[in-house]
Nucleic acid binder design. Structure first.
Lengths: 205, 205
DNA sequence: CTATCATTGTGAAATCTTACACGAAAGGTG
DNA sequence: CACCTTTCGTGTAAGATTTCACAATGATAG
């Protein structure tokens, strides 16, 4: 029940969780069905049921799923019961946007620190945090035992910064730098490059 | 050679293109092989050859691929030969970051306009553009024949803004709003929600 | 010119993912 | 209680994607 669950299934759980949370906030119902959830997400009901069945039996025939209970279960599965401290590397426009984004906190993450290598930026306040010099990176990450980082820096420094972060103990990296990163086994990497996504779509236009 | 190419293959082409462009910039070689490209991207060489073979024969046995030629071919396939004008909707921190991001221009896209519904933001300059009121949205998009838009707005207005954009002629949407969007057939949508990506990784920690 | 090496493009096999379809429950109704 | 409706969980079939492995081709060296 642990290692043999397909990555692609894990990838959909956060989407289910997000929609279930929205349903809970709408507050018009306490249960939902795989069919309703699928409708709202453009996913087949069979796929949702199959995905969930990898982790246990959360529903009830005839009734569907209790929203609150399923949110709880999915949060547990995704290790979101307590908050993850996150380091942001890079205090440019993007780092600024991330530091001020208030959508992290209620979904399992808290921006704990932000770094930059530009002395002119160090000391500035961003989203309630003071920008730290990148020379403090290892010290702070180790002290706060940070496991999750977001890279908002130019591509030519992305790999070296990745190496420093991994060495300091980071195990999950979300990179906005448009470059493939090499990491040791056991370290998770996820990418976000808007141009890649746009180019994927222009093919069809 | 057109409609029956798997989406998943299309999705990898921009990644190949990005790495090939980097290889070209490094300037140490004029050719590369599927093996080398795969090594740099963490993808198997067979997959790269198979993907490319959907579109034609671009390589040469014994030698590999001419980098410049392949860049050209991939750019053509992805319709990047001329630049796409892009509308940014939302002039908050994220819209600000997008307007100032200079990585669009040499990869096929140009931010052509930016909108906001907050009168206090309208008129501000961002990345060389003046923020326009969202009441001008339809007019500007139609006049400039904009087909690509980026959504950088809160989730509760994302669907209604999507509807307006689609009605005005937009055919490809990159959304940073954490919500599933419903669009008519023929309109492409791509999502970017950092929290979804982080949650996908914490499962493995 | 011949042998050797590198690398492509691709059919076939293997693996992975999704969709189907149905038995089994659970709740509601009269 | 008997019947009807809803919906789950899942074995199996269908479909999609990746990997394998090899013939064919081009370059290179002696």
């Amino acid at each position: 029940m642990a290692t043999d669950i397909p990555d692609i299934v894990i990838g959909r759980l956060p989407i289910y969780l997000r929609e279930l949370t929205r349903l809970a906030e709408e507050g018009e119902q306490t249960t939902t069905s795989s069919h309703e959830l699928g409708q709202r997400l453009g996913i087949s009901s069979a796929q949702i049921r199959k995905d969930l069945s990898h982790f246990g039996e959360f529903g009830k025939q005839g009734t569907g799923y209790h929203i609150g209970y399923l949110v709880e279960q999915l949060s547990d599965i995704l290790r979101l019961s307590s908050e993850w401290d996150v380091a942001v590397v890079g205090a440019g426009f993007l780092g600024h946007a991330l530091a001020n984004f208030n959508g992290f906190l209620d979904r399992g993450f808290r921006i704990a620190c932000i770094f930059d290598n530009d002395p002119r930026k160090v000391g500035e306040t961003m989203g309630g945090l003071i920008v730290l010099p990148d020379s403090d990176l290892e010290k702070v990450i180790k002290r706060k035992q940070i496991k999750v980082a977001i890279l908002a820096i130019p591509p030519h420094v992305a790999q070296q910064m990745t190496d420093r972060l991994v060495k300091a103990g980071v195990k999950a990296l979300l990179s906005y730098a448009p470059i493939h990163l090499t990491v040791p086994e056991g370290v998770q990497v996820s990418y976000s490059d808007p141009v890649i996504q746009l180019q994927r779509m222009t093919y069809y236009l």
